[in-house]
Design a protein around this nucleic acid. Sequence first.
RNA 1: GCCCGAGUAGCUCAGUCGGCAGAGCGAUUCACUCGUAAUGAAUAGGUCAGGAGUUCGAUUCUCCUCUCGGGCUCCA
Length: 660
Amino acid sequence: MSDITVNLPDGSARTLAEGASGADLAASIGPRLAKDAVVLEVDGEPTDLSAPLRDGSTVRIVTQKDSDALEHLRHSTAHVLAQAVLELWPGATFAGGPPIDDGFYYDFELPDKSGFTDEDLERIDAKMREIISEDQSFERFELPLAEARELMADHPYKQAYMELAAEGDHEADGEVGSGASISFYRNSDEFVDMCRGPHVPSTGRLKHFKLTRHGGAYFRGDEKNPMLQRIYATAWASKADLDDHLNRLEEAAKRDHRKLGVELDLFSFPEEIGSGLAVFHPKGGIIRRLMEDYSRERHEAAGYEFVYSPHISKSGLFETSGHLEWFADAMFPPMELDQDGSGDDASYYLKPMNCPFHILIYRSHQRSYRELPLRMFEFGSVYRYEKSGVIHGLTRVRGMTQDDAHIFTTTEQMGDELTSILSFVLDLLRDYGLDDFYLELSTKPTEKAVGSDVEWDEATATLRSAAEAMDLDLVMDEGGGAFYGPKISVQTKDAIGRTWQMSTIQVDFQLPQRFGLEYIGPDGNRHRPIMIHRALFGSVERFFGVLVEHYAGAFPAWLAPVQVEILPVAQVHSDYAHEVAAELRGHGFRVDVSEADETLGKRIRRAKGQKLPHVLVVGDDDVAHGTVGVNPRGGEVERNVPLSGFVDRLSGEVAAKRKV
RNA sequence: GCCCGAGUAGCUCAGUCGGCAGAGCGAUUCACUCGUAAUGAAUAGGUCAGGAGUUCGAUUCUCCUCUCGGGCUCCA
């Protein structure tokens, strides 16, 4: 028997007997490696450990420590999930089950088209652990299409994937493998799944998983397709990693702005008003006003002019803008005022966007190139009839206020203007405490779009070069643009690494055409301006919600609704407490006094629960010396601090706000 | 909009296999006057989300509506 030689990533080579597998290779290097090996990468292709090695190939052994091992662990655990469900529900069928960030899912259709319950997840979990304890091996085999169809005769969704693959649709690659034959993995007499692979050698490798959620999901994500039942799960290489992940989820749940909104008395969604319509309570109102005030200040400094527009408009405006043609699904139905037929056009709509109004301001008189770029800013409240199932706290509502601006420029100015807008946006977001960004470029939608490809290409190219100048990661979102133009969105990561879509910047050639906008150029001729739409917060509501979660409710001093709470030790110290309060208010601070009719410990506990920046305790010593006891959020208690010293400290914190 | 699940006091939740509605926290009042994360007592607080049906009787069973939660789709 002849030998084969394979190359290893460190440049060395290793000689093995012909027919040796990756597992043999790992074993020849060391027992520890053999134990930790998950899959192989042969000439860059993920491959099963059990596959025979080719002479001359370059082989990397992927172990549990490698980041790319996780997707294989998860994908393999998904198979075990499918096996468990098909065993527990005879007659059930299954569709796809890919690895995703932090886990995997699998889609099923149960015999009576019913859904899973929480109790079902426990049963499935138990069955999966049974399968894992049996340490079943994943055995790969391949079949020609006809035989593959026969094997999956009872599973129409698997057959659908085969059809897609046969048509050359790469979406199905992960399910069927790519190539002339279809690959399968068998891990018991009862269970075979169609799959590209590779998989871990056996189910015994898959201990650290947890089923997390279940819900409906359309087959291939298309609402025209049947709804399947999806189970989400997470899986990790070690128990410690799994626990870390579960702890992160718990931490995220504690930061949930809907929960904190109630606890900190910031906002609510009264049922009487309607779904997705928020009211801000006084404390939330302070934060919101400060956010808005600072934004106004910065916009004014950046050359924006402030405008105002009404919440409703006659239908003709939205016919001209194209909203009724392209956006009507997301608009509230019209108010019909002309019931007796005596008036003129009397259908009024709540506005879903501010742009048509700003355009009318532009068009109110003839414009000169000397006025451009003309930047109009408004905190404009808009209303969108979002589908009932998508409403979510403050991040997805039906009534919102956009920090909306429309900039009218010449073609020549557009590139510079886009660059300066992006810098402005990122700079301002940093002032609110967010500093981890990437950009997303959304291109022409395949169905709902106005304008020619040439215009779209030009606008997209301009946006792209502005984005590339920012020195941030740029990812593509094909077909994700608005109906009137492409957009850049700024994606922001919060304190615990979650991504939020915030600001959007859109180039628009369409609306200036539709409204016939013009300016007189230096040549004395009429020209068409280009319009840039941009919102920095996205919506004030969403940004508010994101900040609540980013700060976990512990707002920095400049935004905190109450910056200082003063606690007299006993009632005799109450007058002094109020003197201190008056002094601090005189410096512009937001201060409460909590009287001594409850124990000090209880008042401190309550103030801490409200996540205030500072709690001041004042007693005999302080009355005598004009000092305060300072108990800062997240810091050590300090006694006998002169009041003036505390004023300086807090002033510094507030002034430094913007770089918290 | 679609698939599942849930709505009991301001909040967090028990409970009723159909027979006068419960706790803790919070609120109010009283007592206590306290130096850094829960003092004690008393009182108030609910059309058990809303509507219809079944029943001698419905918070409980059935249906519809609304709202919320987890997903899908969509999105600032």
